[in-house]
Design a protein around this nucleic acid. Sequence first.
DNA 1: ATGACTGCAAACTCTTTGCACAACA
DNA 2: TGTTGTGCAAAGAGTTTGCAGTCAT
Lengths: 146, 146
Amino acid sequence: MFPTSDTDARLVGKLRDRRLRVTPQRIVIHRALCSQARHMTAEQVLASVSDVLPGTSLPTVYSTLELLEELGLVRRVGAGNGAVVFDSRVEPHAHTVCRRCGAIADLEGASAPKNALSMAAATGFAPDHAQLVVWGLCSACAPRTG
Amino acid sequence: MFPTSDTDARLVGKLRDRRLRVTPQRIVIHRALCSQARHMTAEQVLASVSDVLPGTSLPTVYSTLELLEELGLVRRVGAGNGAVVFDSRVEPHAHTVCRRCGAIADLEGASAPKNALSMAAATGFAPDHAQLVVWGLCSACAPRTG
DNA sequence: ATGACTGCAAACTCTTTGCACAACA
DNA sequence: TGTTGTGCAAAGAGTTTGCAGTCAT
């Protein structure tokens, strides 16, 4: 399989560096995360991948997501309510999570996460990532609630 | 059972306001969260409570924690790795989470979470809580890793 | 050719649910 | 005394593990 985009090339490069195999599943799962609306659950990744690669299994999705996280191509985001999604935007940033519909969106302009890294470092902690989550009601859900 | 401290009085007051019953389990679980090292898992709460009230069950712990959260006396904190802890400090604040030992600590001085609330509000989102998590290695674990 | 990766099925953990007994108000 | 809350046991969801066959290198 040839890389058909920068996205693929980045993954293939990282896999080759580590002497790991370039499999269709890895390519397709990575594409799904980069091209679709990000913030996908494992189930959503499977559904998206299954269109292209029927027969792909959930354990493979999980193990591939874990691998992609190790390669620094994906981040695991805990929404706090137990829901876990995977995000191909890897730099520290902020999310809003709707308590009613569960929607997860990026919150732009919050410099907080990056600042927090240096604050944490000042306490003797060795930070490698930070994430800010804001809970509440999204603009679609807020009007219909008391 | 009489309130023996401000902590108890606050819980009892909130329960009475809602016409809910004041039970030993609720008192003891609330005390555990307020007096012990905070950031306890449900299992840790049960262990702590069992010393005082043997026979207390895990389902009761969960349902009580859910109630305390509704009453605004406790916050559920998702560490992102799947671990969930409960925190009796309820205002928005930041945590550090050690990837090696799992230790969770407060990160003081990060004004980020509060700022994020107003940023989110500006986008049409109706925020009610924010939480910042910094992952990395704590000062105890950092030295022994490459 | 050979060793890593995938798919299937089952196990595992954590949390929630249903029902009968106990206890708060 | 009448409900509400608790405890027990079992169910449920999501994720992980083990093993045999397949496929990338």
